[in-house]
Design a binder for these strands. Sequence first.
DNA 1: CAGTAATCGAGACGGTACGTCTGGTCTTCGG
DNA 2: CCGAAGACCAGACGTACCGTCTCGATTACTG
Lengths: 216, 216, 216, 216
Amino acid sequence: MARATRTAGTGGTGPSATRHHGNRHGRSEQARLAVLNAADDLLVEKGFAGVTMEGIATRAGVAKQTIYRWWSTKTDVLMDAFLQDVAEDLAVRDSGDLPVDLRAYLRDLAWFLSASDSGAVFRALIAQAQHDPAFAQDFRSRCLDQQRRRDRRTLERAAERGELPPGLDLVAEADQLMGPLYYRVLVTGEPVGQDFTDRLVDAFLHRHGLTAPATG
Amino acid sequence: MARATRTAGTGGTGPSATRHHGNRHGRSEQARLAVLNAADDLLVEKGFAGVTMEGIATRAGVAKQTIYRWWSTKTDVLMDAFLQDVAEDLAVRDSGDLPVDLRAYLRDLAWFLSASDSGAVFRALIAQAQHDPAFAQDFRSRCLDQQRRRDRRTLERAAERGELPPGLDLVAEADQLMGPLYYRVLVTGEPVGQDFTDRLVDAFLHRHGLTAPATG
Amino acid sequence: MARATRTAGTGGTGPSATRHHGNRHGRSEQARLAVLNAADDLLVEKGFAGVTMEGIATRAGVAKQTIYRWWSTKTDVLMDAFLQDVAEDLAVRDSGDLPVDLRAYLRDLAWFLSASDSGAVFRALIAQAQHDPAFAQDFRSRCLDQQRRRDRRTLERAAERGELPPGLDLVAEADQLMGPLYYRVLVTGEPVGQDFTDRLVDAFLHRHGLTAPATG
Amino acid sequence: MARATRTAGTGGTGPSATRHHGNRHGRSEQARLAVLNAADDLLVEKGFAGVTMEGIATRAGVAKQTIYRWWSTKTDVLMDAFLQDVAEDLAVRDSGDLPVDLRAYLRDLAWFLSASDSGAVFRALIAQAQHDPAFAQDFRSRCLDQQRRRDRRTLERAAERGELPPGLDLVAEADQLMGPLYYRVLVTGEPVGQDFTDRLVDAFLHRHGLTAPATG
DNA sequence: CAGTAATCGAGACGGTACGTCTGGTCTTCGG
DNA sequence: CCGAAGACCAGACGTACCGTCTCGATTACTG
């Protein structure tokens, strides 16, 4: 909900800035944000089936045609809503120490995937990708790739610092490290507390001989 | 498709065995199988969105009400279809040797998840579980639990044989071993060849000091 | 997912009469009449533009699909509504005396065309026939022909009684007699009082030497 | 189509005549004619339902707002298009002989109403007048009155020449004479050949003792 | 010779209704 | 009682037009 307010409360923000409702010079930013917000809110409140083009239009105070002008399906809208929000809900910290950063990131990722609003959108999009191969491709190139890059970031920084053996396939390592977390959230639905994520990190560190914590 | 034929071509199976079209003697097995088949076929042919109650009814030559009498939603139908087929498409072998059995199972599981018909149904159900928490619970207890038990079987047998250290949390181990495979199929959509599954097995074995394979 | 079904609590109106809401044995008479009524009412209240399929459905408490199942357009609905009502709003009297009956019928017809509810529907249908040739053909065979037959009836009876010269083209005579009335209602929109219709009748009678009233 | 060319082919008409695209001192005649033409063409090609403000704008190469600036509805546009054309498609001849002129005019009127392009527009406008009383009033004062004056012209000239009895109500006589023709075109849709119109004229003449034609 | 005022093409906007599709419910009849 | 058939209410789908609006460019008068 923070989104719309940012622009809606224009008050006397700028001189005569972005006041247009859509004309030859481009679309209405106001309508765009209202749509993204409405989609987001509906997903969180009523679930994926409760997100309909009509519902979004009504809730956003926007004409259906305005939505169809810029997005082709409700999942397309949700994808934009996700891209708008994800940066705020999942940041990558950098303390310069791999074990510390890794533990922090997996904890944050677990929260993002299982508890945040944009995580709910993310899960819905992954689900839709199972149902629709064409959407899957679009989703991967527009959302998932950057998400995986984020997931790899901590390892890459450590590799640059020399904390990891050279020549390591970081993509494969990241998939092996994060995979069980995604699996748990998406498939088994079991809780993902810090104990769970820490165990994954420990296994990773141990695998590369970085520390040998007797976590048990 | 084998399913329906089994019953439809009754020919001279029995005296006048399961010949009823639905009367006071219980539901029609013929109708039940036709429905499951139709749902299955529609999913494979047209994707999840192409599976509708009306479509199933038409394709199965059955009245809509007949479906609603026994199933509540199309995903409910698909779940039954899945349970009917999964046993055939994913078996657990037992050679008595952990590395061998593990490599074989992960290869089979990869094929099952990414290429088999029942795997397609499975993915659709997992997707639906993201969209609908109530369905998720039902799906987990009726389908997923047994799937995870199957995934664990090889490890359990090895543990019984003493090939694995005692006191190991087999559930956690299995999740960590299979997680990246599910992740790859459901999320990244990248191919899951034997090289990929073997690498997962090798990491698992190495983690427990069972072999020290030079990667490659 | 129990849906709140709203059924008119008719109590125990009849034995077990027409209680069905549409099943394999035919359509719901209740729905049919509700639709015709709603269309009629909307036309009278809001004019032709105020008659919409959605509006009819809402007002009739009927699903849009139910309308489209039995009628193709709103004018199709209006045509049925007209056929349902016309008999009540325009009757042909028979006193056995041509001048008397003719004066009475033209007066009734004038009221029907310009002031009755079904006359309003009739005018709307004639208008639509100007806009759509395909509809025009349908309208003429289903409504107009019987209307013109009604318009001719009085003359035909008089001819049978020998009050009119034999061999007269009654169709042409009727068109010439009624034409100016329709013209006045549809085109000029001027009032059609009894003085006006009587003058038409007098001209007709004079044309055939039946009476020679010096009408001023 | 003749219309636009008339102005479009400015060639060397005037010095720098009507070349403006609309500025503070008046509207663009070019746009005006393009709109009227487009409306006319659309009506003839696709029928009344095929005439839309958007369609007119596109076909005329004009912005929607330009249309709304000068006309309020599509029927308003059609009315102007009609006024632009009617004079060319229906002229009143004057030979000085009532029977001759009357026969000629009714023949021309029949062709105008049933076969000409502006007649098609005229019928569409009459139809719209049935649907919309406010439009009806506007249409009658701006189009119909002059049309009825044209219809009366021949009789008026004959009256001035003394060919008709003095004190005759020419309005009523014209309505009674033309009414059946309008009725036939607008309501029954039957063909209006010269035999039909001549018979109307003969009845009129006989009614006033001008000739005594043996009917048929 | 700038400034102003009205026009024009373009097209996004909030809406309404369209005609279609699917979801679930209900009723009737045959076996 | 079950199953086939199919009519029913409900409501979302994606499209077509409606009438309003804002924009930048154009053009003739006005000061």
